[in-house]
């Protein structure tokens, strides 16, 4: 390398290193150190795992953690179930202009702020909302029906918010499946279900895995949807982190919570990638 291109290399490397070090690596190291701090007096600290012990000894905390995890898993599976037929329809049963239009119609809601989408669901679901009025009008309900502030509302919001991140990778992988394989399956007498199981799903597996990983991560780290649609008792782990930081001002415990959430999220990503033998780069590029 000449001196000139060495200089170029370092000039290009510098912004990357500054960005990653000051905004990603050091803050996370710092947060981990804070999570190990035990408050013993005013501005007096000891190092230890007490904050993590608090988490495991307090049922409310780890119950919320577990609940967040399994609700996120449920949201992921639901998104996959609802999204798969749509992705198949877009990829295999339409073409040309109508394909582009349907795909765009999937995209547009997700360019809009999550806050606006959640607000929409609040107007639809609340006691004075559209659905409640509709039910009364049709005569299926005698009084106002509150559909907000329960787990089903949270689930509706999570699935809605994550749909795009499932449909896009599925459409991409299904697009690359050669139609003649499906037709050959039919010609050889396979049933629709057998073709789905033997041809379509195995081919779509990379898309399914990357979609599931992203949707799970987004649900786990979601704050708006559970808080606004689930109300005060939504018991979402990000809500606990927020209250430790902002209302209780207990940054030590909040950091420990943050690390646990980050750990779970990374673990799932890691396991997902290992199971599907994919690399992070490839999955995220989809």
């Amino acid at each position: 390398m000449s001196d000139r291109s060495k200089l170029t290399f370092w000039l290009l490397l510098a912004p990357l290193l500054i960005w990653l070090l000051t905004l990603i690596i050091l803050p996370h190291v710092g947060m981990f150190l804070v999570s190990l701090r035990e408050k013993v007096g005013v501005r007096e600290y000891e190092t230890g795992f007490a904050n993590y012990a608090v988490f495991f000894n307090e049922p409310l905390y780890w119950n919320t953690f577990a609940r967040t995890a399994y609700m996120s898993i449920a949201a992921t599976l639901l998104t996959l179930l609802i999204g798969f037929p749509i992705a198949y329809y877009i990829a295999k049963l339409t073409r040309g202009r109508s394909k582009t239009t349907l795909f765009l119609m999937c995209l547009i809601p997700f360019w809009v702020s999550e806050l606006v989408r959640t607000f929409g669901w609040m107007i639809l679901l609340r006691e004075t909302g559209v659905f409640s009025n509709l039910l009364q009008y049709v005569g299926l309900a005698s009084g106002p029906v509150e559909m907000l502030y329960n787990d089903a509302a949270i689930m509706t919001g999570l699935v809605y918010t994550s749909m795009l991140f499932m449909v896009v990778p599925l459409v991409t992988t299904l697009d690359s499946l050669d139609d003649s394989l499906i037709e050959a399956g039919y010609d050889l007498g396979a049933s629709g279900f057998a073709i789905l199981r033997e041809i379509v799903i195995p081919h779509a597996m990379p898309g399914i895995v990357s979609g599931c990983i992203v949707v799970f991560m987004l649900s786990l780290g979601n704050y708006l949807t559970p808080i606004l649609l689930g109300g005060k008792d939504s018991l979402w782990f990000t809500g606990l982190i927020y209250s430790q930081f902002i209302t209780r001002f207990n940054w030590e415990l909040g950091s420990a919570f943050g690390f646990l959430l980050l750990g779970l999220s990374s673990l799932i990503v890691f396991v997902g990638l290992k199971l599907s033998r994919q690399s992070l780069g490839k999955t995220m590029a989809q």
């Binding site: 947060m31 780290g221 980050l262």
Partner: peptide, 23 residues
């Protein structure tokens, strides 16, 4: 470095926020 560059995608936004706040 490429993997490190991709990491912000898999860190939940709220964690990114608190880590920068703490730091």
């Amino acid at each position: 470095l490429y993997i490190l560059m991709l990491l912000p995608l898999i860190i939940p936004g709220i964690i990114l926020g608190i880590s920068i706040l703490v730091f």
